[in-house]
């Protein structure tokens, strides 16, 4: 380009184009993105010649170089689960725990216990299925992709966890119906607290680094467990006032177990959660047999609390480290 530009053409023709496409150029990640957008807006090779470039790519590179990058002022963060998910989760939790309690209290005995196990398994799997359906967010992305099994597969983990819960509740109901009722209602608060923890974790996605995320989430799970214990204490006072100390212990342990199991499941290890609950149930069932209970001389509720305490502690240890990682809140 020699000499002065012809009269009528501006000295810097790219300037107009730049002003017209400023937002595009500021947010572009690559000159080719600008080239694609320019071609979409009707600029062809001949059009580029008007801006003294051989092709659209050269023009796009000039635009990219002349405009500093600036991302949009408010970029949307990935949406967290809506608040209405909390009462819904509480509803599913209550269903999954109260349903197996009905046969365990009304007919009672071994047949009632067996029915409770079956109902518990069915209700647990059903609640998980409903939760997965609601978990599909507005953007259509499956949030529970890693936790839930594939479509058409048998949800063994949910079935096992439900069956174990049913058996534990049936055993508790056989010895202390009041505490069992309180623990079953506590299942609702456990589900709600787990949903709150999940939502809280999702909302911390705006943390700058993984380290910051970890420090924000470090005490979330202990706080959630404390909240669940407080809720159980309140329920126990309301429903089972004259329960002995061992009954209280069983209530607190069995009421916290569903919360920990739900957290471990959400963190992508549904199998571990199911195994822990089933272990607790199996241990409690063995202790409830006439022989062992007689030899040990322990009260039935005390044995229940003792057998469930180990798996609960293991689950807590298993849930705490992953609960500080963002991958657990997808």
């Amino acid at each position: 380009m020699t000499g002065t530009p012809a009269s009528g053409t501006p000295a810097d023709p790219v300037r107009e184009l730049l002003d017209a496409n400023r937002e595009l150029c500021e947010q572009a990640v690559d000159p080719l993105e600008i080239a694609a957008a320019l071609e979409d807006s009707g600029l062809a090779a001949d059009g580029a010649a008007r801006y003294r470039h051989a092709d659209v790519f050269g023009l796009a590179e000039e635009l990219y170089a002349r405009v500093p990058r600036r991302p949009p002022a408010r970029e949307p963060l990935p949406p967290a689960e809506p608040l209405r998910a909390l009462p819904l989760a509480a509803l599913y939790g209550a269903g999954a725990h109260l349903l197996p309690l009905l046969p365990a209290t009304a007919p009672g005995g071994p047949s009632g216990g067996a029915l409770a196990v079956l109902l518990g398994a069915g209700a647990g799997a059903g609640a998980d299925l409903l939760r997965a359906r609601c978990g599909r967010g507005a953007d259509g992305r499956d949030r529970t992709a890693d936790a839930a099994p594939g479509r058409g597969a048998v949800p063994w983990a949910a079935l096992g966890r439900g069956a174990g819960t049913g058996l534990l509740l049936a055993l508790l109901a056989a010895t202390d119906p009041g505490a069992a009722t309180a623990a079953a209602i506590g299942g609702a608060s456990a589900a709600a607290v787990a949903a709150w923890l999940r939502r809280f974790g999702q909302r911390q996605g705006a943390a700058a680094t993984l380290g910051e995320f970890r420090s924000r989430l470090r005490f979330a799970l202990p706080l959630a467990v404390l909240a669940q214990l407080a809720a159980l204490t309140g329920l126990g006072r309301a429903v089972a006032r004259d329960t002995p100390a061992t009954g209280w212990a069983a209530l607190l342990v069995l009421g916290t177990l569903p919360l920990l199991a739900a957290v471990v499941r959400d963190a992508g290890r549904p199998g571990a959660a199911a195994v822990a609950v089933l272990t607790a149930a199996a241990g409690a069932a063995v202790l409830a047999l006439p022989g062992p209970a007689h030899w040990l001389g322990a009260s039935p509720t005390g044995g229940l609390a003792a057998t469930a305490l180990g798996p609960a502690l293991l689950l807590a240890g298993c849930a705490w480290p992953p609960s500080t990682r963002p991958g657990a809140y997808r």
Partner: peptide, 18 residues
């Protein structure tokens, strides 16, 4: 997040990493 990475349009957050 290392120096030298091209983050002219903003640093990545935890949600971006995920």
């Amino acid at each position: 997040r290392m120096p030298g990475a091209d983050t002219a349009g903003g640093q990545p957050l935890v949600c971006d990493v995920l």
